[in-house]
């Protein structure tokens, strides 16, 4: 345990030896993934327990409240921040609201439906499912991005292999331990932002060390997958637009 804590602390303080020793370790990927999981579990446990605490009384009420919030501003709820840029005539808005109203009762009726197991089991299992899905999806995104960065790093002359790349980039999660304080108003989001920036710096350091690349090339290797993704989305959109026009 001490060894793991030392690795996490030294990685957080960007000590080069910590990254090189970790990269040369036989269990580099196992250690990286277990650090990732340990932090994700710690950060996720507080919201999970708060879900459990409110298990029985509030679920139906919470869903009803969500529906009512949706009905009070359907355009904003549907479009999110993009609603500010979209002008919808008042009569169309009214039409949307009128069509949505029956669904408020529907949600209440869904909540009253019987099921084979007691409702609190449903809430506990759904909370556990959300919690587990969040961690697994987060790991999936990290792994996909790390593999893409590795490919571009290799293209730029990088020397890492997939095992060391995944094992060392997982250390970016270390500062995210600050997210356990996310529930504190104002302070929580600020700490989250600090953790994200700090994590990014650790990521750059990790990629740079295992690939033996200078910082400039490292940052380029990290930006290229994002640029490639944007180009892909644009090309696909153009393709769909062209096909629609042709059709």
């Amino acid at each position: 345990m001490n060894e793991w804590l030392k690795l996490a602390r030294d990685a957080a303080f960007l000590k080069t030896d910590a990254f090189t020793d970790h990269a040369e370790h036989e269990d580099v990927m196992k250690r990286g993934i277990l650090i990732f999981l340990a932090i994700a579990l710690l950060v996720g446990l507080i919201p999970l327990f708060s879900d459990f605490a409110g298990v029985i009384p509030s679920i139906a009420a919470a869903r009803q409240a969500q529906v009512e919030a949706f009905l009070s501003d359907p355009i904003g709820s549907l479009l999110g921040p993009a609603a500010a840029f979209v002008e919808i005539p008042p009569d169309v808005q009214q039409g949307i609201i009128e069509n949505m109203k029956p669904w408020a009762d529907t949600v209440a009726r869904f909540n009253s439906l019987l099921m084979p197991f007691p409702r609190f089991i449903k809430v506990i299992l759904e909370s556990l499912g959300d919690f587990t899905s969040t961690i697994l999806k987060g790991m999936g995104s990290w792994m996909l991005y790390a593999v893409l960065v590795l490919l571009f790093a290799k293209w730029l002359g990088g020397k890492a292999n997939i095992q060391t790349m995944l094992g060392t980039t997982a250390l970016f999660m270390v500062p995210h331990i600050l997210n356990v304080l996310a529930f504190i108003p104002i302070m929580g989001p600020l700490l989250g932002l600090a953790a994200a920036i700090w994590g990014l710096v650790i990521y750059v350091k990790a990629v740079s060390i295992v690939n033996e690349l200078p910082t400039g090339k490292t940052i380029l290797a990290m930006i290229l997958p994002i640029l490639a993704g944007i180009v892909l989305v644009i090309v696909l959109n153009l393709l769909i637009a062209a096909l629609s026009a042709a059709g």
């Binding site: 299992l125 899905s133 697994l136 999806k137 790991m139 999936g140 792994m143 996909l144």
Partner: peptide, 22 residues
């Protein structure tokens, strides 16, 4: 990782696909 399917509704996203490919 799909052993987590014990919990209803768990979604693994890209994880199993990209890990299997690796």
């Amino acid at each position: 990782i799909n052993l987590t399917a014990l919990i209803p509704g768990v979604q693994v996203g890209w994880l199993v696909f990209i890990w299997t490919m690796s």
